[in-house]
């Protein structure tokens, strides 16, 4: 039974590892210009339609941005250049991704800090609970136990 269990776990481990490796290998990022343009468009917000990105929106300005992204990708501009160009053209809130510098970076940092703090508190709590369990027996406890032992 024991052995059968061990072999099964090994098998599961192999399958999971193989699947994960395959998933990473297969995920080769944007292969074509079209895929790259698609990824950029999905992070550009339509300036006039409250939160929809330019892929989702049927507004004329969204269509304009879509074709501008296509053009810029075809020209061989980098992702960063295209984003900067769009921000100059339509305002910085066209980017669905908040900036990674200045005050805006806080939105990325705060959750990580909160996560670290939460885990830290949890470790602390477990430490306290564990130490709480190892209570030194008082003299009375020892006396009671001894009395019981002698009785038996």
């Amino acid at each position: 039974m024991r052995r059968y269990q061990r072999i099964s776990w090994l098998l599961i481990l192999i399958i999971v590892t193989a699947a994960l490796v395959a998933s990473v290998v297969a995920d080769d990022g944007p292969a074509t210009q079209g895929e790259r343009a698609y990824e950029i468009k999905s992070t550009m917000l339509c300036p006039v339609c409250d939160g929809q990105n330019v892929l989702e929106s049927n507004a004329p300005v969204a269509a304009a941005i879509r074709s501008q992204v296509d053009d810029l990708v075809a020209e061989g501009r980098s992702d960063g250049e295209i984003r900067a160009w769009m921000a100059r053209q339509y305002g910085s809130d066209v980017n669905a991704n908040p900036p990674r510098s200045g005050v805006g970076a806080l939105v990325w940092i705060l959750p990580v800090l909160a996560g670290v703090m939460a885990v830290g508190l949890l470790i602390l709590a477990f430490g306290r609970w564990r130490s709480g369990r190892e209570i030194e027996p008082s003299e009375e406890d020892i006396r009671i136990v001894q009395a019981l032992r002698e009785k038996n």
Partner: peptide
């Protein structure tokens, strides 16, 4: 003015 959208 900045946006926090789906990618975030």
């Amino acid at each position: 003015r900045l946006a926090v959208g789906r990618p975030y």
